[in-house]
Design a protein around this nucleic acid. Structure first.
Lengths: 159, 159
DNA sequence: GGTGAAACTTCTAATAA
DNA sequence: TTATTAGAAGTTTCACC
């Protein structure tokens, strides 16, 4: 898929909305010295172009009792089983992301659980899927997320 | 941190907003057969309680020319260097997440790059950090993200 | 392309239940 | 706690630059 051409105004709009989707267009307009109508049109275009695919809340899962994060590498008996196993993995809600990978593992996923006991259950569920040979777990002791804004700035300065 | 008590109405509000933060409160109210004022109060409370920590746009990075995802495991000479290395890693904008982990690697991170050539540069940057012994890369061939909504539903049914 | 203003929709806080 | 309501605020469209 080709790059999409965004100008500086688009970048600044994304910059603001990426940090808080509920900032009013009128506020953005004031800040960028353009009209609210323009902000509206720009956002709509970026949505139509598929650059903006949606918006989501950021929740504190720790406050909901889910403070445990781990990455689990999955080894398969045979790579032909990849799709089947992936589908089984997707049925486990505690697996938040799964990747088919090259390198050490065949499938690689991130899980979010309540605690070690709960994580053990989830990992056993993964182990029990037909075609899975074994798994290897890396427990996250500390997560540090790099602000999306940093990547965006870097991307924008390249375009 | 303790669990927070959310009732069914809160769950349903989160369910809707997690999929699209811009759904008007009046629409949510209609759907849940409550008033918009109530929705407003509930959301505000969840924000104050720290359950809702923010909102963000979902962007299609592939459309922006960034279709390459890889996970990189980092081995350190000495775990005492963990904090130092983590700080250097955070300076690289193409690293979107980094974790201190137990298990195979000392630090584990996710990178987003334009292509293999660019990824190579990023990985070399990681390798060059003082204290890093070596890295191990797993390239993502296919990413499958499990809907946040699924995890939420599961969490809610437990609470 | 952008603007500004009108028409419409939504938000929000105070009041009442 | 929740509902109602009315004024404030935001969104969206459109005729005109």
């Amino acid at each position: 898929m080709a790059k999409f051409k965004l100008d500086d105004v688009d970048h600044q709009i994304l910059d603001i909305l990426i940090q808080n989707t509920r900032v009013p267009f009128t506020d953005i307009a004031k800040k960028l010295l353009i009209s609210a109508g323009t902000v509206h049109v720009r956002v709509k275009k970026m949505e139509e172009a598929g650059i903006i695919t949606g918006s989501s809340l950021t929740l504190d899962y720790t406050k909901l009792g889910y403070s445990f994060i781990a990455y689990v590498g999955v080894f398969l008996h045979n790579t032909s089983q990849t799709q089947f196993v992936l589908e089984r993995i997707q049925e486990i809600p505690y697996v938040t992301v799964a990747h088919i990978t090259t390198g050490k593992f065949n499938i690689f996923c991130k899980i979010r659980a309540r605690d070690t006991l709960h994580a053990k259950e989830v990992i056993f569920q993964l182990d029990d899927i037909d075609g899975v040979m074994r798994t290897e777990t890396m427990i996250s002791l500390e997560e540090s997320i790099n602000d999306k804004k940093r990547l965006m700035h870097t991307i924008f300065n390249e375009l």
